[in-house]
């Protein structure tokens, strides 16, 4: 069964069909790309999948479970985590606390236990700290654990966002332009990290990207959006050769 199955999804804003009749299936463990020119509706698809927007039509199923119309927090609990195109970290919190927020649901001791420092607090906070440190190590951020997230360099902020997303134990990870603003060297490093976390955390990954080096490098399958409609769908090699796709990207 597919990890994510989207069926005829549509949403419009004031008469403009931002996404129209969008369908896709992502198999478990796949690395799937969503590409398209600026304004094609890629981020809108992410916002629909994560409950930021409610679709006008269509059904979204995650691992067989219907998650259409659920609020964002519930969708996160169901197993979708995401990063944002314009980085959204908790800037006033330290690097490690950003990851700890991601572990919120996994270690649910109560308010009273937290305030009175009951044994369940001590035990679970210890586990939270260990787990968060582990995650920071994977992204090579453990050296900056007590730094304010706002003071991290740009590339590290992108990595921290991914670390925070993975902390929620997702089945499906959505990455919104993870390589934006990175140089070719950093992009290569990012590709390796993405491959690594897919193995390590048994993830299915859907990513939006403009960087063709990254897309052709790691995505196994692609969907191309243009003006809210699907232009092409299939194996990366075939899609990138599609004349329609080339025209959408490069013009006539």
């Amino acid at each position: 069964m597919a990890m994510l199955s989207v069926d005829h999804l549509s949403i419009s804003f004031g008469g403009l069909a931002a996404v129209y009749n969008f369908s896709m299936e992502i198999e478990k463990g796949a690395l799937y790309g969503l590409i398209g020119p600026n304004g094609a509706g890629k981020t809108t698809v992410f916002n629909l999948l994560t409950g930021v927007y409610q679709p006008k039509e269509g059904i979204i199923r995650l691992d067989g479970q219907d998650i259409t119309g659920l609020p964002p927090a519930r969708i996160s609990h169901a197993g979708i985590a995401r990063t944002f195109q314009n980085i959204r970290l908790f800037q006033g919190l330290s690097v490690i606390d950003n990851v700890k927020v991601g572990l919120h649901e996994s270690f649910p001791y109560g308010t009273l236990a937290g305030v009175l420092r009951l044994p369940s607090y001590r035990k679970q906070e210890k586990a939270i700290d260990d787990r968060a440190t582990e995650l920071l190590k994977i992204f090579d951020l453990d050296g900056q654990r007590d730094l304010l997230a706002a003071n991290l360099p740009y590339g590290a902020q992108r990595k921290l966002e991914i670390a925070r997303a993975i902390a929620t134990k997702p089945k499906l990870l959505l990455l919104d332009e993870p390589a934006a603003g990175m140089n070719p060297g950093e992009t290569t490093e990012l590709m390796n990290t993405i491959r690594l976390i897919r193995e390590e955390f048994d993830l299915t990954i859907l990513l939006i990207e403009h960087d063709m080096q990254l897309v052709s490098g790691i995505c196994e399958e692609l969907t191309v959006l243009n003006f809210g409609r699907m232009l092409a769908q299939g194996r990366t090699k075939d899609v990138l050769k599609d004349p329609e796709v080339i025209r959408a990207y490069l013009g006539e």
């Binding site: 994560t50 930021v52 609020p71 964002p72 927090a73 996160s76 609990h77 985590a81 995401r82 944002f84 959204r88 970290l89 908790f90 800037q91 006033g92 919190l93 927020v101 991601g102 919120h104 649901e105 925070r164 997303a165 929620t168």
Partner: peptide, 10 residues
């Protein structure tokens, strides 16, 4: 710090 990110983090 960021309501949208907090929601998306569950």
């Amino acid at each position: 710090d960021n309501r949208i990110a907090a929601e998306a983090t569950g």
